[in-house]
Write a protein that binds this DNA or RNA. Sequence first.
DNA 1: ACACAATTTGAGTATACACTCCAAGTTTGG
DNA 2: CCAAACTTGGAGTGTATACTCAAATTGTGT
Lengths: 184, 184
Amino acid sequence: MARYQVGIQTEARIIEATRSLLAEGGMEAATLKAICDRAEVRSGSFYNLFDSKEEAIIRVVRESIKAVDPDPQQKGTGTLDDLVAAYIRFFEEKPKVAKVYVMAALTGESSSNGARRRFLRHHIRRVERFGEAMQRADSSMTDDDAVVSAELLLGALDGLAFRWALDQEFEFSKYALLAAEKFA
Amino acid sequence: MARYQVGIQTEARIIEATRSLLAEGGMEAATLKAICDRAEVRSGSFYNLFDSKEEAIIRVVRESIKAVDPDPQQKGTGTLDDLVAAYIRFFEEKPKVAKVYVMAALTGESSSNGARRRFLRHHIRRVERFGEAMQRADSSMTDDDAVVSAELLLGALDGLAFRWALDQEFEFSKYALLAAEKFA
DNA sequence: ACACAATTTGAGTATACACTCCAAGTTTGG
DNA sequence: CCAAACTTGGAGTGTATACTCAAATTGTGT
């Protein structure tokens, strides 16, 4: 772990290099050499700060998953529109992180089941949040209905995100809003 | 290219080995050694039948993309329900191929744009088919509306497929039908 | 200014990978 | 039954990869 300023800065450069490489070319592009070249660091320095390449990648992926969820603290408040708006904002403000997020689920083979399980846990938590927001808006909704509706809307949002990752010209926010109208 | 019976069988074993490895563990799992071991073939035989590992993978991916589209010949007929039903059937009947399909877009050779572009072309074709089916059901629909609706429904279906790839317990067909209902 | 821990360097290691080569074996049509 | 066409085994090649290490340099609290 970095103690001095230089070390902390180097660490940040390595993380940023890893993130941009993952966003541009997926796991395949994030080789140690590529990361070190982009961060302007020699491999020895890399291993002074990280135990393995995997560690750097996991940190980037974990951070990207976390970034999707706006303020997990504010549980129990917030409307469905807030949640959808937060998702849209995430894509507009942090496209690089967003792309890593979209890639993470399918590409996470590196740590085999670990990454996938983490992603699934995250998804389930999100379904709960969306479902609760839906129930708050319509108190006649059963728990089961809420889960089904939330799963449907989140599926649509993730599908549109996937579409955006394929082609950044795609107007994600426009379709995300339409999906919220249609599936809520 | 294989001419004799033995060669044709070996080729089939290699393709099947590649497909199952891709479905189980993504690109990372589909090493030459793993493919050859599973197909019970030595690397020399592999290269007698394929120019490269890439060729085998591309064939599997291409086949999986093709398998999603039911009878491209029947253009101009078929209802939206038929198209959705075909997509659902694809997941139920060919789960292995389906998983490769879901993985293909981002994970393929994420660096080489070839796979991504092919996937995008395929998606656009599908949006057209879905849009036409929607217009056939509601003749007052403009072309633009059809594209938007089709993009939305396909986004949802793909997102649910993505969800299924994460966790095969997920009842894909149930949610796919619910999504389709919203557009009826 | 000093001691010493943190950081950097860069050559070096081991390994896994895709791919080659060709002698020996098998299948096929005539 | 033969010869040509095809297939196979498996040792071997070159290369890219993640990772190590000891020595040199730099940052920090006192």
